[in-house]
Design a protein around this nucleic acid. Structure first.
Lengths: 337, 337
DNA sequence: AGCTACATTGTTAGCGCTAACACAATGGGG
DNA sequence: CCCCATTGTGTTAGCGCTAACAATGTAGCT
């Protein structure tokens, strides 16, 4: 390897050792065509010997490309966002991009602008926003940002490229599955919080499936994604004898619901059928195992990087922003067989 | 704001508009002392007017500081890492650093080296590794890396600065709590996978508490953190009439255990007391609510950034690497009251 | 031989910024 | 009224790299 030296080696050091000009070293590093194989080898040997690494700042300065992509996320302890981030990270790395993380300090226009400023400060080339709330998507569509943006899990948004899972289709499938049991007059819905696009999509799908089947559409109840809210609201629903099938907007809330139903003495699935959404790894081990909807977040991450890179490579494309919808998949388990 | 121009404004543009030299603009931006207030104002106005933003690459090139900190994480869908990352992100931003995410492609020396190379390529100034496996910490301690490193959740590691939660203390508290009920001869342990430092710490604390109390120490059973493994191994433990108190190494596995016990007809806590570890938000809504141990991951994130920044500011400090242990807190609930 | 075409390498000029120094302009103290 | 310290500002020289062009060499053809 390299002998300890006072400063990191630079291109000129490699050039000297290889007996070429620094430009030839640059050519080797950038895979330019016209370098004699023998020369290339000498350069590579010199690089290895010195443990040389190209200075990314100098490179970015002259090429005007930082290879940095920003990711803005609101809450990574939620299953979906964490999973999506993992998918994004892998896809970005595979394409030679670096990922810069920014947490959103609150769900406001102001926080959104702040996060974007922060990324612009780093000269990020583009940005993926994992923020499933309507207000964030609206802010994104309104404010003109200095860099290309792709929203993830944003439902349909006007004038904004979006990648998301087909919430509506997933919800429709669940409700159809519940109705197909043949013993429910209708399906009640414990929805996610208002203002969340995923929650809205699931409400839409649920309603559509009921209307399609000519069933009454009860008023949905709104939780906040947490098991706690599932428990509290589940207790109310458990007290309502009309409730015999329940579609809960995510698995965490469904956990709380299962608990509330158990406490109320209503058996699942004998008395009440319950279905969730997300297929978190724990869902299979709820009491009873939860029927739910699987979302391929890794795929969402991959597609969002692709969409973003398209926009980065073709900066002023006149095409309208494309959106990309990943299908959901019903997973039937004992809570609603 | 700014009028549309063919290229982004640079410092010289601001200087021209403010009628000063570009160096004065630089002084204003870097809060140098000797700038007349009137001049400073003129410069700030010009910056605002042009929508000027300093080029971070150029700045990094000359200062030799990128303000980038790398975070290497293995699996962000685990509760602890996701939480820790959030803490790190906030602390880093507050200190003016950017965060670059790298996923570890596997738990090997090779993957570790690869991740570090990737960060070195970006000229990250330092790096926090969220990797709770022994092999990763060993690799970290052995390989000499080109940048300062802090490990998180690494237990005690020789020659490596580490921030972690007091696993041992937390485990000890749980076991003491279970024994204090007065109706258990001993406490069985469903441990985390071998090779995970957190798992090892919890085994140590569990054993210590039992020995302290003069109780027999049964052979621990090893799971893999997943609810599935908790369910499978829980079924075995449920069949053993000696098992009346069970300390499970994390909440996810505890969920599986609760299910297995329920299926085996053993009531919790009447027949078997169960305790977990982590205090995931769902734990309160298990059936029954789970006694567990809270870990302050946000604090862990904060402290790890502080430790890393210390090492970055004082590059060749001769002091041995400091470690930092965050206390754990027992949360008693119905599963082991 | 002489000329063109092309492959290969070197030379030069920045990218946008900060550090170091140079140079006014000021303001007491002798 | 000069001297020197202090304050404010401008000038210059890079940081390490790539793009553009210039300068070789080398082969193929007439």
């Amino acid at each position: 390897m390299s002998s300890a030296s006072s400063r990191e080696p630079v291109m000129a050091d490699v050039a000297r050792l290889a007996g070429v000009s620094h430009q030839t070293v640059s050519r080797v590093l950038n895979s330019h065509p016209n370098v004699k194989p023998a020369t290339r080898t000498r350069v590579l040997v010199a690089i290895e010997e010195l443990g040389y690494r190209r200075n990314s700042s100098a490179r970015a300065l002259v090429t005007r490309r930082t290879s940095v992509i920003g990711v803005v996320a609101f809450d990574l302890t939620l299953y979906g966002p964490a999973r999506t981030l993992a998918g994004i990270e892998q896809a970005a790395r595979a394409q030679g991009y670096f990922l810069s993380m920014v947490g959103l300090q609150g769900v406001t226009r102001e926080a959104m602008r702040e996060a974007m400023d922060y990324l612009a400060q780093q000269s990020a080339e583009g940005c993926i926003v994992i923020a499933p709330q309507r207000i964030v998507v609206d802010a994104l569509a309104e404010l003109a940002f200095p860099l290309p943006v792709v929203a993830v899990e944003g439902g349909e948004a006007p004038g904004l490229p979006v990648v998301c899972v087909d919430q509506r289709g997933g919800a429709r499938d669940v409700v159809r599955h519940l109705l197909a049991q043949g013993r429910h007059r209708t399906v009640h819905h414990l929805a996610g919080p208002l203002g969340w696009l995923e929650a809205e999509g699931r409400v839409l799908g649920w309603r559509q499936a009921l209307e399609e089947a000519g069933r009454p559409v009860p008023e949905p109840v709104y939780g906040d994604w947490s098991s706690r809210s599932g428990y509290t609201l589940g207790a109310q629903l458990a007290a309502d004898p009309d409730v015999s099938a329940l579609f809960v907007a995510n698995d965490q809330m469904a956990l709380g619901v299962l608990r509330a139903l158990a406490e109320a003495g209503r058996r699942v699935p004998e008395d009440v059928s319950v279905a969730g959404f997300d297929d978190i790894p724990e869902a299979e081990f709820f009491t009873p195992p939860l029927t739910t909807v699987f979302q391929d977040f890794a795929e969402v991450g991959r597609r969002s990087i692709n969409l973003l890179l398209d926009r980065i490579e073709a900066p002023r494309s006149t095409e309208p922003p494309a959106s990309d919808i990943v299908p959901a998949r019903l997973i039937a388990r004992a809570s609603a067989p």
